[in-house]
């Protein structure tokens, strides 16, 4: 495996993605979503979260300790950004990484590459380029959120910055297995629409399977097929569950990336 070839392929793919509609399928709704959220944050929605009523309501969802930790002990704007990000990442990752291979499988472009690169190099390059675009997009919104937090939340700048960095890296770690999940989907189908549809269908399928176990002791057991199941633990910042979830995310990544590569390496191009 040559990192030089991976680097060349990755840079070409990022350049190509940013100059084509492909990345705007992700960037448009992503920007719109955060524009709306940041507008609300700037209007002082976090004051409401820090109020007694706000804490009461959020305690019902995250528990009292969780709510206090998120909205009192830490800058609430960043926490709100964190919760919304954890919720929307599965959707945004589908849009950001649905076309790791699909278009090129359909057009046959990969046949030009296969004579010059190993399959694993193509796989890694495409994975990294999709992940890089996502990482840069999240970096930008994290910076904007940190600026808003410094302006509005009244916490020390260092505290805001450290918390933002922590949240950013957790989000990246959380996004990693989703990008790998999309590498499996994208290796399976030759069309971008089919890739988006199948990616979403995966989430819907898990939700549907969970319905069968809703009244049993194994409730939500199928949720653990996807990394979404770690979301609830990741919100419990600094708890044992939180650290366990952080440790499990790379395992999800390895499983999905391994599966993705297996599909890609065995399929006819």
């Amino acid at each position: 495996m040559s990192w030089q070839r991976i680097n060349i392929l990755m840079r070409f793919d990022i350049y190509y993605s940013l100059t084509r509609l492909k990345s705007w399928v992700f960037l448009m709704p992503f920007s719109l979503c955060w524009f709306v959220v940041f507008r609300q944050i700037n209007k002082g929605v976090t004051d409401m979260l820090q109020s007694q009523e706000g804490i009461m309501i959020t305690s019902a969802v995250y528990g009292t300790d969780g709510a206090l930790n998120l909205f009192i002990d830490n800058p609430p704007s960043i926490s709100l950004f964190y919760i919304i990000s954890l919720t929307t990442i599965p959707f945004f990752v589908v849009l950001a990484s649905y076309d790791q291979f699909s278009t090129d499988l359909g057009s046959g472009f990969l046949r030009f590459l296969i004579a010059r690169c190993k399959r694993i190099e193509i796989f890694f390059a495409r994975f990294l380029s999709a992940f890089s675009i996502l990482a840069v997009a999240f970096l930008i919104v994290t910076i904007i959120c940190a600026i808003l937090s410094i302006r509005n939340d009244g916490y020390a700048t260092t505290e805001v910055l450290l918390y933002s960095v922590e949240i950013y890296f957790i989000l990246l770690l959380y996004a990693l297995p989703f990008v790998a999940y999309m590498s499996v989907i994208s290796s399976l189908v030759n069309s971008t629409l089919a890739s988006i549809f199948l990616g979403m269908f995966g989430y819907a399928g898990i939700w549907f399977l969970n319905l069968f176990t809703f009244f049993t002791e194994q409730k939500d057991i199928f949720s653990y097929l996807l990394p979404n199941s770690m979301k609830q633990y990741l919100i419990e910042l600094d708890s044992n569950n939180f650290f366990m979830a952080l440790a499990i995310l790379p395992i999800y990544f390895l499983i999905y990336a391994g599966l993705g590569f297996k599909v890609f390496s065995r399929r006819n191009l």
Partner: peptide
């Protein structure tokens, strides 16, 4: 053989990437 530069191919119905000049793609190859 893929990374040795010994073998190249003109596939029958494969197409270059759309929206980017073919020269840039040749340089990539």
């Amino acid at each position: 053989i893929a990374t040795t530069g010994k073998l190249n191919i003109l596939p029958q119905d494969a197409t270059f990437k759309k929206g980017i000049s073919v020269k840039k793609q040749l340089i990539l190859f």
